[in-house]
């Protein structure tokens, strides 16, 4: 198995989820420096593997590149075979907040130096631009909302006035229909005579009481 696969297993065993460096939406020249990226809950952890070169210069160069990655990740590790341990300057890594993972011949991975978590992560340019645009939109919406609130208040006041006027008009209409004015009586309805027998209401048709009552005076 390769060094890479040992490190992948190490992070998987800790519940991390492997992600592709391209998913981080960071500049390509920086992304190519990442050998492994994982998501540890919400934190982005990236690893740069030192594969060859046993001299301090190469190690320092790798450390410098890894330090750049801290702009875009929460934790950054360097990973190297166990035999490199003698040439790695732990102090340089620690000062730059980098962690160190060493892998022995059996594939055991040891966290020799924990990475310092970064408090703020640099927002990728693509996101930053979108955020800025959103901020502008939110400001526009906020202003529109204030304007709308003022309109609603005005409409509420007008509705109250309309309701009061409507009631007044209804009352005046009813008074007119009922033939009343404040000065006296105005009749408005025209009574319709029931002309034919069949137009009589049901309770009047064939009602024996009509004859009985008509003879009241004679009884």
């Amino acid at each position: 198995m390769s060094l890479m696969s040992f490190i992948e297993r190490y992070f998987r065993d800790r519940g991390c989820v492997l992600i592709s460096p391209s998913e981080l939406r960071i500049p390509e020249d920086i992304a190519k420096e990442i050998d492994l990226a994982v998501l540890d809950v919400k934190n982005i952890v990236v690893v740069k593997i030192i594969r060859d070169g046993l001299n301090r210069k190469l190690l320092l160069s790798a450390a410098m590149k890894a330090a750049v990655l801290r702009e875009y990740a929460d934790k950054v590790y360097l990973a190297a075979p166990m035999e490199y341990r003698l040439v790695i300057d732990g102090r340089v890594l620690s000062e730059n907040g980098l962690g160190l993972l060493l892998v022995d011949e059996s594939g055991n991975v040891m966290e020799v130096l924990p990475a310092k978590p970064k408090r703020t992560r640099r927002i990728p340019d693509a996101y930053a631009k979108a955020f800025s645009e959103l901020e502008k939109q939110i400001e526009i919406i906020r202003r529109r909302f204030d304007e709308l609130n003022a309109v609603v208040e005005r409409v509420d006041r007008l509705m109250q006035e309309v309701e009061a006027l409507r009631k007044e008009v209804e009352m005046m209409e009813r008074e007119l229909k009922e033939g009343r004015t404040r000065g006296g009586l105005v009749t408005t309805q025209v009574a319709r005579e029931i002309e034919k027998e069949e137009e009589l209401p049901s309770y009047l048709r064939d009602n024996p009481w009509l004859e009985i009552l008509a003879r009241r005076k004679e009884d």
């Binding site: 209401p201 309770y203 009047l204 009602n207 009481w209 009985i212 009241r216 005076k217």
Partner: peptide, 15 residues
Amino acid sequence: WRGCIVYSVAVPDEY
């Protein structure tokens, strides 16, 4: 009410 209408219709005016 219906009974009242019948009564109004039927009882002679002079009663």
